[in-house]
Design a protein around this nucleic acid. Sequence first.
DNA 1: ATTACTATTTCCCGAGTAA
DNA 2: TTTACTCGGGAAATAGTAA
Lengths: 244, 244
Amino acid sequence: MQLLSFKERVLIFLAERDAFTNSLKMTTPMLSKYLGTSQQSASRLLIQLEKEGFIERRIVGRTSYVKITEKGLSQLREVYLSLKAIFERPVNITLEGRVFTGLGEGAYYISLPGYAKQIEEKLGFRAYPGTLNISLLSRDSIENRHLLQRLAPIEIHGFRDEKRTYGGAKAIKAVLNDTEDVAILFVERTQYDNSVLEVIAEPYLRGKLGLKDGDKVKLTVVIPPSTFFENFTKTKAPAQPPVT
Amino acid sequence: MQLLSFKERVLIFLAERDAFTNSLKMTTPMLSKYLGTSQQSASRLLIQLEKEGFIERRIVGRTSYVKITEKGLSQLREVYLSLKAIFERPVNITLEGRVFTGLGEGAYYISLPGYAKQIEEKLGFRAYPGTLNISLLSRDSIENRHLLQRLAPIEIHGFRDEKRTYGGAKAIKAVLNDTEDVAILFVERTQYDNSVLEVIAEPYLRGKLGLKDGDKVKLTVVIPPSTFFENFTKTKAPAQPPVT
DNA sequence: ATTACTATTTCCCGAGTAA
DNA sequence: TTTACTCGGGAAATAGTAA
C-alpha cells in the first residue's frame, strides 16, 4: 500500500524539519502516530537507523533529540538526484506507423487561406498542400497519440465562410524519421479514428523521403519536463463524497 | 540496509527507461537479478504493483511488456516533490550563545590596515574595531560552527610586516538576533577553542543592542541549497579493496 | 511520561514446481 | 524458456510489560 519504506519516511520527516542542523525533539509515540505504526516499531526503527549511521540520538534529561547524519542526508540526496534525473529531463515521445493514402481532403483544406495563414504564422512554415497519413502500429503509439493531443500547444482556429463552417485543430511540432521537421495535426472533426495521424510539413514528404504506402515511419516529439509531468501526473483529487 | 522499498525501485527503474510512454520488455528473472531478489519475489512485486494500479502489463506472444501508469508516475513525482522541497530550499543555520568579554585583542587586529582593508572590500562595511565574543551553548551550535567554518566563503588573507606575521581568517555573513547584519570570523590562529564565535559588524553591537556579558544571542546564517548540500553530503567513496 | 525488552502473530521471502 | 502457484521458514510488526 505504502510506496516509501519506513526508513525513508523517517529521514524525510527529519529533513523536512531541518534536523540536519537542529536536533529535533522526538518521542517514539509521536513518531509511531505519524508513521501509522506501533510505538514498538518506531522504537526499533530509530535503533536501526542509528545502528546504520543514518541518524544520531542524544538524551538530555528525559527528552531525546534526533538528528540526521551526513550519511543519512547523503542517502536521501542520492534518491533525490535519481528522481531529479527522471523528472527534469525532456520527455521523448515516439510514435510508429505506416504511411497510407487517405481521402485526399488534406490538400484541399490546407490550401484554404483560413487555415494556410494560421499554419504559416503559428508553425513557421508554408505547409505543402497535403497531409501525410500515418496508421499507428502499436498500442503505445496510439496511447501516445492521445497524450500528444492533450499536450499539443498550437491552436488552429475554425472559421466560416458563406457556404459552411470549418472546424478547428491542434498541432504540435515533431521530427519525422529523425530528420524532417514536421507538425502533427489533431483535427477536431476528422473522418479518421484515433489510430491515425495526420502530418504536415514544408516539403512534399513522400517525394523528399521516397515514401510509399506501407512504409514504416517514426515520429519523435520532445516535451519539456515541466509541461509533460504537470499535465501527465495529476495530483489525485480529494475523495468525492457520494451523492445521497 | 536498503533505504528504498522494492516497489519504489521498480518504479524508478521503469521511469528511468521512459516506461511511461514506451512499454518496456521485461522478464521476472531479469528484474529479480536487478533487484537482487528471487524470481518469485519479482513476480509477486509486479502482480502487486499492477493490482495497486501503479503499472500495467501486457503479454504479446511470449514476451511481456510493462508500463508505468499515470498513477504510478504521480506517486513517484510526489516523492520527488517532497525531496525537492528539502534539497532546493535555502538552509537556515542557527547558533545560540552568550556574550562574553574576551582578551580585547580583536580591536587591535581589526584596526590594522592589513585586515581592515580586506574586511571593507570583501564584506562591504567598515568594521567597528572590536569583536563580539559569543560562547556557544548547545552541542548543535558547536557542530554548526564547524559546518560554517567549512562553508565560509570569504577569505581574509594573512600578511606580514617588519615585526611579525599575521594569520588569515575566513568569514561568513550572518544576522544577529534577527536584525543586525554581521559577519562571523573564523580566525586561523585563535586563542579560543571551537565553542567560541567572534562576530564583527559595522556598529558597536554591545552599544546598539544593549548587550552585556551573559546575554543570550542568536546568529542566523542562510546558505543556498546548492552550496550546502554539495558540501555537506559527500558521495561515499567507492569501496576500497583491502591491501593484501 | 517515556524507551525498549520478550513473546506472539503476521507477513514476507524463496524453494519447489506446475503450466 | 517464461510466470506464478503453494508452502515452510524466517523476518518483521505488534502486544504485553518492565524499567
